Deep mutational scan, measured.
Amino acid sequence: MGFKLLSKLLVYLTASIMAIASPLAFSVDSSGEYPTVSEIPVGEVRLYQIADGVWSHIATQSFDGAVYPSNGLIVRDGDELLLIDTAWGAKNTAALLAEIEKQIGLPVTRAVSTHFHDDRVGGVDVLRAAGVATYASPSTRRLAEVEGNEIPTHSLEGLSSSGDAVRFGPVELFYPGAAHSTDNLIVYVPSASVLYGGCAIYELSRTSAGNVADADLAEWPTSIERIQQHYPEAQFVIPGHGLPGGLDLLKHTTNVVKAHTNRSVVE
């Protein structure tokens, strides 16, 4: 069995187990497998329904001669939608809004960016022009300005110390501490036991640490421990890039980060 097929099978099995364990909360999309990078042309966006009122959005972007996937989250909030992270750029984010209108038909009224990198804030200006209120932590807003990236308009308070959590509509926002970046936030959907790890969490097929220019490698494993301790009931975990899975993604990420750190020390 090929690795790609095995990865998709694991996603399907995880979703099936969740649907059985929580039949009222989960209505997993039966329309197909989780979209992969090879299936999404740059400039297009796919939506994948995880649970009743919960979707991931998947886009792709060219970077350094390669094409990478990027995940975000959409959560229903009454007759409105909360968006977590842009679709990595203005063109993708405009396509995301169009796809949401086509498939869901509810307005996106608020959006949260989970850290300051372009795959999370690139497209904020498109959201703002569409009347979406954009939010991020003060740290993310400051770092985005320093980096020359787009800056969300509103500040999220109460997320300055490791372990801080605040309720934001249908989700809980959690600051686990520094990891992929010093400002990275985690998003949890309690009604569906869905954990969105953003770039602080890796997919299972990833074996290298990737972009760690703004990471705190020493603190990252401790931050992941905080996530595990705060959300032990999480059933569906979405990484910032690639295929979702279960809580095993947290341990896998820790292993990859520690291996990278150990290699760096040896070198």
Rank of each mutant, 00 (worst) to 15 (best):
S137M: 07
G122E: 14
G210E: 05
H260K: 01
V126H: 00
V124I: 02
H230R: 07
A15D: 11
V11P: 06
S113A: 12
Y175T: 13
K102T: 13
M18V: 06
E267H: 14
G245T: 09
T14H: 04
H115R: 00
V132L: 03
F63I: 03
H260W: 13
Y175P: 04
A90K: 12
Y48M: 02
H241R: 01
I100Q: 01
F236Y: 00
D248C: 06
G245S: 11
G122W: 14
R46F: 08
Y135D: 01
F3V: 11
E157S: 12
E99W: 12
A59E: 04
G123E: 02
S70C: 04
A95E: 14
V112R: 00
V28Q: 12
R206M: 13
R110D: 14
R206F: 07
V75Q: 12
T36D: 03
Q61G: 04
D52P: 05
V256C: 15
V237G: 05
L143S: 14
S56P: 04
S193I: 03
A215T: 13
V45D: 04
G53H: 06
L185P: 00
P170A: 09
A165T: 08
P138T: 14
S31D: 13
S27M: 07
G78S: 05
G105R: 05
A129F: 09
E150A: 06
G32E: 06
I224E: 11
P190I: 13
G131R: 05
L243D: 07
Y175F: 03
G240M: 02
K8A: 04
L185A: 11
V265F: 03
V256Q: 03
L247A: 04
V132A: 12
L83N: 07
W55D: 09
H260E: 07
A129Y: 06
H115F: 00
D85K: 00
T253R: 02
Q235R: 13
E44Y: 05
W220G: 11
G210Q: 13
E267K: 03
A136S: 13
A21I: 05
A192E: 13
L82T: 10
L13M: 02
G53D: 02
T93G: 04
H57D: 14
H230M: 14
Q103V: 07
V54I: 04
E172C: 14
S223V: 08
H57K: 02
R46A: 03
A234S: 12
V187Q: 01
P107N: 10
V37M: 06
G210I: 15
G53P: 13
I84T: 10
S161G: 10
S16D: 05
G131S: 03
G122M: 01
Y48P: 06
H117K: 00
A94T: 12
G210T: 07
P152S: 14
V212F: 14
T182E: 03
V112L: 11
V67P: 10
G177T: 01
E33R: 05
F26D: 06
K4L: 05
L5S: 06
L24I: 10
F116N: 01
W220I: 14
A136K: 07
S155M: 01
G169I: 14
S162P: 06
V11H: 14
V67K: 10
F168R: 09
R128A: 12
T36E: 09
P35R: 05
H115C: 00
P170F: 01
A111K: 00
L6A: 10
R206S: 12
T60F: 13
D118Y: 05
V237K: 02
Y196W: 09
I151W: 09
T114Q: 00
A98D: 00
A165Y: 04
V171Y: 02
H117G: 00
G72H: 09
S7I: 08
V11Q: 04
L5C: 01
G53F: 12
L185S: 13
P35H: 09
P221M: 11
N211T: 09
V11K: 06
R142V: 05
Q103L: 07
I238L: 12
C199Y: 07
P138N: 15
